[in-house]
């Protein structure tokens, strides 16, 4: 194994008999740094609550050696919530990065092009018609995929153009939102109420079952997302250039859309729609690390996880009333979105 220092700063080339890779060390270190911050934040989050648990007790409880009360609070109540926030934040960020790269437009994310609205419509329908919470994930999942498929089919005209995809997506999203509103006025208030709370997006009440679903999804989708970074990077050069470089455009796009949808559908089925994480985080990653590189997805995921966990800590503890985390992300994200639009306007 030869380990040649790259001539370009921040790159490391590793060549072996089995593989040759060039790693952007700077981005990888950044990702590691953010992960470190995330670990600290997670530990702190587990100490907080109406029943404070000191750091040492958190540590012992995690290892299963704390007193019974602490173990229950930490392992049954707090760990699943923290892990869910981390997993959901990371997945949302990845799906945002995929959609933004796909359409070469930084103002896009699954919540903006209507995929989340579609999932929400199905989930609310599921709840108000009294089908119970048990199979809710599958309803949301089905909604996200059907919406994505509909957007894809409607924007197909001998190939999918990114601009048409965005416009069709916004249209479908509005229809789905209208449908959701209709359901909430059509059904009695006491049935609608829990569904409405769910649509605000929250990781409140997450349990180990949710963590398991997330774990399986991440195990499949994270490698896929990292593997697709190459294709995304090529797509940044434009359609014709990508084709000239031998990329089967439609197939790659379909794969990217499916992966992006799967990522966001899983999060919705667990926590409801949480806005703006998918939009903001990829920007943050680009600001820190420059254009897309191989380790970018790891950095984006870590940043998304940190962002959502921090937002959840604020939502839960910083205010007199505990709020759903979606309220906080929207409160931060909406002004940021406006800022982006404002800057995009100035550039034109």
């Amino acid at each position: 194994m030869a380990l040649a220092p790259a001539r370009r700063r921040g790159h490391l080339t590793i060549r072996t008999r089995a593989f040759d890779v060039r790693i952007n060390v700077r981005v990888l270190l950044l990702a590691a740094g953010v992960t470190g911050v995330l670990a600290l934040l997670a530990t702190w989050a587990m100490t907080l609550g109406s029943y404070p648990v000191p750091y040492t007790d958190v540590f012992w409880s995690l290892l299963g050696r704390g007193n019974e009360e602490h173990e229950f609070i930490v392992r049954t109540l707090r760990v699943p919530r923290v892990l869910c926030a981390i997993g959901i934040g990371g997945m949302l960020a990845l799906s945002g990065a995929i959609f933004q790269g796909l359409v070469r437009n930084p103002l896009v994310s699954p919540d903006i092009i209507g995929i989340e609205s579609g999932a929400t419509l199905f989930a609310v329908f599921w709840l108000v018609t009294g089908r119970g919470w048990g199979l809710l994930p599958f309803a949301a999942f089905g909604g996200a995929f059907l919406t994505a498929a509909l957007i894809y089919v409607l924007s197909w005209k001998g190939g999918v153009s990114p601009n048409r995809l965005i416009l069709v997506g916004i249209g479908i999203g509005s229809c789905a939102a209208a449908g959701t509103t209709y359901l909430t006025v059509r059904y009695p208030v006491e049935i609608v109420r829990p569904a409405q709370v769910w649509t605000m997006g929250s990781v409140y009440g997450s349990d180990w079952g949710d963590v398991r679903v997330l774990g399986v999804a991440i195990a499949f989708l994270l490698p896929l997302a990292v593997g697709l970074t190459w294709s995304l990077r090529t797509l940044q050069l434009g359609e014709d250039v990508s084709r000239g470089l031998g990329m089967p455009l439609e197939r790659t796009r379909l794969l990217l859309i499916l992966t992006g949808c799967a990522l966001s559908a899983v999060t919705i089925s667990i926590a409801g729609p949480i806005g703006f994480v998918a939009l903001m985080t990829p920007h943050l990653a680009r600001m820190l690390a420059g254009p897309l590189s191989g380790s970018m997805m790891l950095l984006t995921g870590a940043l998304g996880a940190t962002f959502l966990l921090a937002a959840d800590v604020v939502a839960q503890h910083a205010l007199p009333v505990a709020l759903p985390v979606g309220v906080i992300t929207s409160a931060v994200g909406a002004p940021y979105f406006l800022l982006l639009l404002y800057r995009a306007n100035i550039r034109m």
Binding site: T13, F19, V21, T234, G246
Partner: peptide, 10 residues
């Protein structure tokens, strides 16, 4: 890019 693959990146 056309000459590269998942294992042979660089």
């Amino acid at each position: 890019i056309p000459h590269q693959s998942l294992l042979r990146q660089w």
